[in-house]
């Protein structure tokens, strides 16, 4: 790989005469899966990527800021109690001011505080949905891709059935059957998202399964589950990781849509989609109620997307040599 800062391996057959070889002798011999300094290598690579792709770096920084807001909401929110059940009817619908930067909503809650608390809900939903969807989809996909034959056929047909439903409609149906709550949103969205991961992983794993090292492991008598875990899964992970970051924005948007339709999160939980829904009738008169949570959704989805795009380019082995 030309992107590697170190010189490539020396010519056949001599090993390196420089201290690196001796250090390797003295230090732990390399039976670990990772090279000796994974963190430093990763950081160096990240920095190099950041320099090359300013937009992705901006997305990453933005995302870190959003995560920080979510984690620190109780401490940095000007009116932490407004993130919960508090109401202040006398201060309803105040426009943005020094006291309330983003204004207040219909029951007098500080919108900045609720946007900060809303980040917790939205990010939790995104992480939970994608975690569940990826866990189910990647597991099934990797099994289908490695096993092939009828196992693959069965898994992929089930996946296709799920894909045949319009995602939002399936989520809606599930959300109506279950009680509206954060859990409901997570389950409903995960149920519509996993088939994409199953498909993606199956196609990647199928090509990984034909590589020489997989055949070699089979010939060495390594049991199939271990082959999948040790070779197929790690070598199929990159496109899945990229897809995850690209999807995170979409999940936040869809969960906002569910809340907006009134079947997701409900008051007094702060959630951006719900806040937009509650403020929409006021848009012409009190624009700030709907604008700021809407912007929060936009910015977060954007941050995830540019980061995902950057990851795709950085992790693509063909792109990495550019």
């Amino acid at each position: 790989m030309t992107a590697s800062p170190e010189p490539a391996g020396p010519a056949e057959p001599a090993g390196p005469a420089e201290p690196a070889g001796l250090a390797g002798l003295a230090g732990p011999t390399g039976l670990g899966r990772r090279p000796a300094r994974p963190l430093r290598l990763l950081l160096r690579r990240l920095l190099r990527t950041a320099r090359a792709d300013v937009l992705a770096a901006a997305g990453a920084v933005l995302l870190l800021a959003i995560v920080a807001c979510a984690l620190l909401a109780p401490w940095i929110a000007p009116y932490p109690e407004d993130g919960g059940t508090a109401t202040h009817p006398t201060e309803a619908l105040l426009p943005p001011s020094a006291d309330h930067w983003f204004g207040t909503d219909q029951v007098g809650r500080d919108i900045l505080s609720r946007v900060l608390f809303g980040a917790r809900t939205s990010l939790f939903i995104a992480v939970a949905v994608l975690g569940l969807a990826a866990a189910a989809g990647v597991t099934l996909g990797v099994v289908a891709g490695y096993a092939g034959g009828w196992i693959r056929d069965v898994i992929m047909r089930v996946t296709d059935v799920f894909l045949a439903f319009p995602a939002l409609l399936l989520s809606l149906a599930l959300a109506v059957v279950l009680q509206p709550s954060v859990t409901t949103v997570v389950v409903a969205l995960a149920a519509t998202w996993w088939p994409w991961y199953a498909r993606l992983t199956a196609s990647v794993a199928q090509s990984v399964a034909t590589r020489g090292y997989v055949d070699a492991a089979r010939c060495l008598g390594v049991p199939a589950p271990l082959i999948v875990f040790r070779h197929v899964l790690p070598n199929s992970a990159t496109p899945v990781a990229v897809q995850l970051s690209l999807d995170a924005g979409g999940v936040i948007l869809t969960s906002a849509a569910l809340s907006y339709l009134g079947i997701g999160v409900h008051d007094p939980t702060a959630e951006w989609g719900l806040m937009v829904q509650q403020g929409q009738t006021l848009f012409t008169t009190d624009w700030w109620v709907v604008t700021f949570p809407g912007l929060a959704i936009l910015v977060t989805a954007f941050a995830f997307n540019v980061l995902g795009e950057g990851l795709r380019q950085a992790l693509d082995p063909r792109g990495a040599t550019r």
Partner: peptide
């Protein structure tokens, strides 16, 4: 093969 190469990944070998 030199034993020191054990820690390397394949792409750093000839």
């Amino acid at each position: 093969l030199e034993p020191g190469l054990a820690t390397r990944r394949p792409h750093r070998l000839s």
